[in-house]
Amino acid sequence: MRIPCPHCGDRSHDEFSYGGAADRRRPTTADFGPEWLDYVYLRDNPAGLHRELWYHGSGCRCWLIVERNTLSHAITAVHAVLPASSPAMEDA
């Protein structure tokens, strides 16, 4: 499997580390309960399109969001978690 990094180009997946599903959100409650149990331990196992995090540790050292089909490994979209550097960000 090769991942097209928006900074580095097409690279073998062994340059990356998998970071789990991209859209999981940390529970806001401080009390341990079903929400935290779900967040910490339970994983979906979708057959098909999956949005997931990958870290390009041997390349640009950036986190990426990759849309991958778990049945075919076809990758349909990749973008950096942080927007690309631009002087326009200066005032943000």
Partner: peptide, 19 residues
């Protein structure tokens, strides 16, 4: 390294961070 080294793809002045 497992990158495309053809000079049309990896041109003079290009940088790669890889393995």
């Amino acid at each position: 390294v497992a990158i495309d080294l053809d000079p049309r793809r990896f041109e003079p002045g290009d940088v790669a961070l890889t393995r």
